[in-house]
Design a protein around this nucleic acid. Structure first.
Lengths: 204, 204, 204, 204
DNA sequence: TATGAATGAGACTTCATTCAT
DNA sequence: TATGAATGAAGTCTCATTCAT
């Protein structure tokens, strides 16, 4: 299934994935055209199709890469500290991800919006494992009376929802505030406010 | 701009808008086809196009209808009570909206994801007004020391983000938990947890 | 599965089938292009695709129509007379078919050459039934000592092979003799010679 | 036109021709792809194209090779014996050819079906010569009252048609009888029946 | 001699939209 | 108001062929 990949193959595939992320983020799967992706990737359409058999393969590649980055982000989470430290760090990481992978985040959001036809399986496996683990940690905190007795999954969803919102809905946010996460001040303000509310919301 | 609309026109246009909401939610603007919408609306394609000049008009119609419903939801907010009552009520309303207008919410999300080409203007006007007003109210609370000094817009975004997440990302949520907002118990649990955290997060 | 077919639909579908027969006979399935068929049928490509979903559907339609005509030809065979009359009549019918349905015969030949991917099932059912019946009749003749004891299927194949040859290999025949079945004299000569040899070959 | 050909060239060209025969037989000229041929020949596509300038050249090569083999088969015919011996031997040779060069036979059939654009010239020359000679021999027999007065070319076509039928239509034959020429018993039966009928058909 | 990489031409197919009734 | 029929534009994908090494 996997061809041997030479240096140039790796480079070009990566080029395509990056271009694909950008275009799919902007136009969705159907809206994106191979032409656009090829143009951004700086290669001819048939050459692009030499590396990825068809449009869907590019899309899957983009999704997998994004999901992997996201999973990695979630896994880098240090759970050894206090709940305050840990949650602060978690939110920080997610905000960073939203800022640094805005396009990927949107492709991801689009896929979920359409019912996650491609990602469903992966989400049910890899992501589920991570959520289960986080849930366990949070339950431990609750048992130790370190945080209030809230439902762990909804806390997790809250953090995901908010941080992702700044990436996915940035058009709306920009229209309303004139700012995006790219604005350093705005970024810090958002992170700070969210962290504050969540921490005060759960810590005893 | 407005033609005189006979009874049957009104009925059929509404049929189309509902069908459009469903289909656009599932496949996005480009992914949706007029055929699909016509089929769901129970009329022939040319007949549908008799009511809406082209695909984009249907889309705009759906977006406007959804936005109006959402604005109405936001406006129904009673600001006369205590912050606790008010915020609780606000979150409740938004959760209801997510549950009862899942499809519309997704069409809306999709539009924002793609940069809100159609809605941008409306958002900058109608929604901005509402946000400004809410901001003023929240600032009043802060000044009166009724809630902690947090940045109002980010509080608003948080609430929007979380409640919308349950509609837009329900595929992911369902994969991870097996539940959706249609499940009464899950719905209440989600609403309760979110309300708790936010209230504890902002109240003094 | 079958739509209601209006007059114009029937007419246009038949136009397409005829054009398809001509083009598929000349260029084979892959070699044929929808453009060519549409051109011959006198309609635009998308309009043609309004009647047949894709190229393969046209092909299947052509094959089925040809097979049906052929089966009908085989069934019109009168088995009540003497072997001499019956065989003479059978060969005559097949020769007629080759002359009057040259293009269809070639499409058919092409399909068989490629392994009959589409027709295999039909051949195994309808045609098999006919062959079995013919075989029974021939065996009866043999038992009654009306013809020599030859293997019936090979006799049948012989007749098919020869008559079909004049349609399918007419390019070769024309190169070698300068004539085709369209030439009345040549047609009669061919039919007469073949009938003679076969009759003398099997009659006692 | 002829380059000096090294050992490896000869070997590789032969590999390509064999692969080409197989693939062209299965899919026809347009249906065959160079990739497929290269794969069967066990070499890369550009390497294959180093030996044959383009697809058509491979096709021509295959056709020429097949035609040569066929002509050789026809020429090996011993005309010195009695008509019975000679015809029996001729049919035998042709049956052998069909069994041993099934794929080539089909490529040939395909070419003729499409109007013999490539072979037409060769057929008009080399094959014509052979047919003329055979015709002369048969006419001699008729004049000597050794066989009945039938039209020689149609006798020749009959034999070609029948023997070729077992190669070209083997898909149909297999569907109807479950056998192919590869089955020794079936092969002998077919040859015997055909020989019998033809001999009885022409001998006085 | 051999092969990864690249491309232009062309085919199939979809789909929004219009026509005619 | 309603709909079968028709079409142009556009997009996906294949494939013979060439390039560069």
């Amino acid at each position: 299934m996997e061809k041997k990949r030479s240096r140039i193959q790796i480079i070009n595939q990566q080029k395509v994935l990056e271009a694909g992320t950008e275009i799919f983020a902007k136009y969705g799967f159907r809206g994106a055209t191979i032409d656009q992706i090829a143009e951004v990737a700086g290669m001819s359409k048939p050459n692009l199709l030499y590396y990825f058999k068809n449009k869907k393969e590019i899309y899957i590649g983009v999704l997998e890469q994004t999901l992997n980055k996201w999973l990695q982000c979630l896994m880098e989470w240090e759970v050894t500290g206090t709940p305050e430290e840990t949650i602060t760090n978690y939110i920080e990481k997610k905000f960073e991800f939203s800022r640094d992978h805005t396009a990927g985040s949107r492709v991801f959001a689009n896929e979920i919006l359409e019912g996650a036809p491609i990602l469903k399986t992966l989400l049910g496996e890899d992501l589920k494992r991570l959520v289960d683990e986080d849930t366990r940690v949070i339950k431990g905190w609750i048992k130790d009376k370190k945080i209030r007795p809230i439902d762990p999954v909804h806390l997790i969803f809250m953090i995901w929802a908010v941080t992702q919102h700044y990436a996915d809905f940035s058009a709306q946010i920009e229209t309303l505030t004139g700012k995006t996460l790219a604005d350093e001040v705005f970024y810090k303000q958002a992170k700070k406010t969210v962290t504050q509310i969540i921490l005060n919301g759960v810590l005893i």
